[in-house]
């Protein structure tokens, strides 16, 4: 029996047909395995995610730029449309803020006196890194975004992202060389230790837990906590992950035992964020 000549096709053919038969199934299994591994924070999956995102960050930066231009143009036109209404609104707000300013000055002087009396050393104000949002704030199943600063700018996982007015947006969960991913407080996996500041100086600790809706829900409030709509919610610093006292949101709805909070930072899409470099442990009110 004569041997058939060994050709490339003859060697490759069985492999190819095997691949064709099982490729789709194996890819499905691979996707499923990645999902499960990613869910338990596997290091390899995490490295792959960060690496791929780092490579594609320039593409996202380029695509984000014209969008930012267009949306700022649209914003300009809509502002123009209701100029008189906005002037009235701002005048009213200015009147109220002026009253607050007088009160703030008085309180600041009083605070200064008391600090001198008790020889209080104020905490150092944290250094911050400004970054631009380069992706949307997530779809229906996830609430996170990529920002344009990474390890080479000093960003580390665990840093706090705040919006322009200083309200908590989220926490950095992953950082590549050129990008970082911020998990927003509304995300399913976000759990923030907070304090609800009630009326009359009362405050109640709890956990602000995201559920992918616009208004995260308060969990583990103490029994008999007297919370009402409009109460301020600030970080409590418990657990030593976040600094204490950062404004988070306002209580907006109380139905039965469910207390929902509207984050201050999410009222409009955050296009710029500041990432705060807190040195946890040196910040008073934080227990490492």
């Amino acid at each position: 029996m004569a041997l058939r000549p060994v050709t490339f096709t003859r060697v490759v053919q069985p492999v190819r047909s095997l691949w064709q038969r099982f490729s789709v199934a194996s890819m499905g299994v691979a996707a499923f395995a990645l999902m499960l591994l990613g869910n338990v924070d596997n290091v390899i999956v995490e490295r792959m995610r960060v690496g791929v995102t780092d490579i594609l960050t320039p593409v996202l930066l380029v695509t984000a730029k014209p969008v930012a231009m267009v949306s700022s143009g649209v914003e300009w036109v809509t502002r123009l449309y209701d100029l008189q209404g906005q002037v009235d609104h701002l005048r009213e707000e200015n009147r109220v803020l002026r009253q607050w300013w007088h009160r703030a000055v008085t309180l600041e002087q009083e605070n200064e006196r008391l600090r001198r009396l008790s020889r209080f050393v104020p905490p150092p104000s944290p250094a911050s890194i400004s970054a631009r949002a380069i992706t949307a704030t997530g779809g229906p199943f996830v609430r996170s975004m990529l920002v344009s600063a990474g390890r080479r700018h000093g960003v580390e996982p665990g840093q706090v992202a705040v919006s322009g007015d200083g309200a908590l947006s989220g926490v950095v969960v992953a950082a590549g060389e050129r990008h970082a991913r911020v998990l927003l407080v509304t995300d399913l996996n976000s759990q923030i230790p907070v304090t609800v500041q009630g009326t009359g100086g009362t405050s109640y600790p709890g956990i602000l837990s995201g559920d992918n809706s616009r208004t995260p829900v308060m969990r583990f409030l103490p029994h008999g906590a007297h919370v009402s709509t409009g109460d301020r919610v600030v970080t409590s610093g418990l657990g030593g992950v976040l600094p204490a006292g950062l404004p988070v949101g306002l209580v907006t709805s109380i139905t039965g035992s469910e207390v929902r909070v509207r984050p201050l930072a999410q009222w409009s899409g955050p296009d710029h964020v500041r990432l705060l470099k807190y040195d946890i442990g040196k910040v008073p009110g934080v227990r490492p």
Partner: peptide, 21 residues
Amino acid sequence: GLLSDILAGHPTGLGALTLLA
């Protein structure tokens, strides 16, 4: 699908599995 999962921050593989299905 995998790329979109990674960039959008979905669980890695969710979009890939959906599109493949």
